[in-house]
């Protein structure tokens, strides 16, 4: 698993590469929460362009971050999910809570 963190003003953009399962979700949870606890971040963009697999551990990690960000009136977005990943996101109903976009550019343009 590889993760790129980028901060643009008060928005943290994380780009995950690989499979988002139990091991990766636990590591990411800690890494993202550390950044959130530093207090300089309000919004979160989760870029799944390079994610080839997601299971309920990965979904749980995303929902947990959604709760934290929303509690501080921040916004969270998911971008670039491949069709097999998107299918699981839709199946879980996560798309009803978190807006999903094709690319980061699409969020910037709204």
């Amino acid at each position: 698993m590889e993760v790129d963190f980028k901060q643009v003003r008060n928005t943290l953009v994380i780009k995950i590469i690989g499979e988002l399962d139990l091991v990766v979700a636990d590591k990411l949870r800690k890494q993202i929460d550390k950044k959130l606890n530093e207090g300089t971040i309000k919004n979160l963009i989760i870029n799944l362009e390079k994610v080839t697999f997601i299971d309920s551990s990965g979904l749980g990690m995303i929902i947990g971050r959604y709760k934290k960000i929303s509690a501080k009136n921040g916004k969270i977005y998911i971008v670039g999910a491949k069709p097999n990943v998107e299918k699981i996101l839709f199946f879980s109903g996560i798309n009803k809570l978190i807006p999903m976009y094709k690319s980061e550019q699409e969020i910037i343009s709204i």
């Binding site: 949870r29 309920s56 551990s57 990690m61 947990g64 879980s92």
Partner: peptide, 13 residues
């Protein structure tokens, strides 16, 4: 509480 509880739902589906 940090899990979604969807594991068995996926298996059943």
């Amino acid at each position: 509480p940090v899990r979604m509880g969807l594991g068995f739902t996926f298996m059943q589906s």
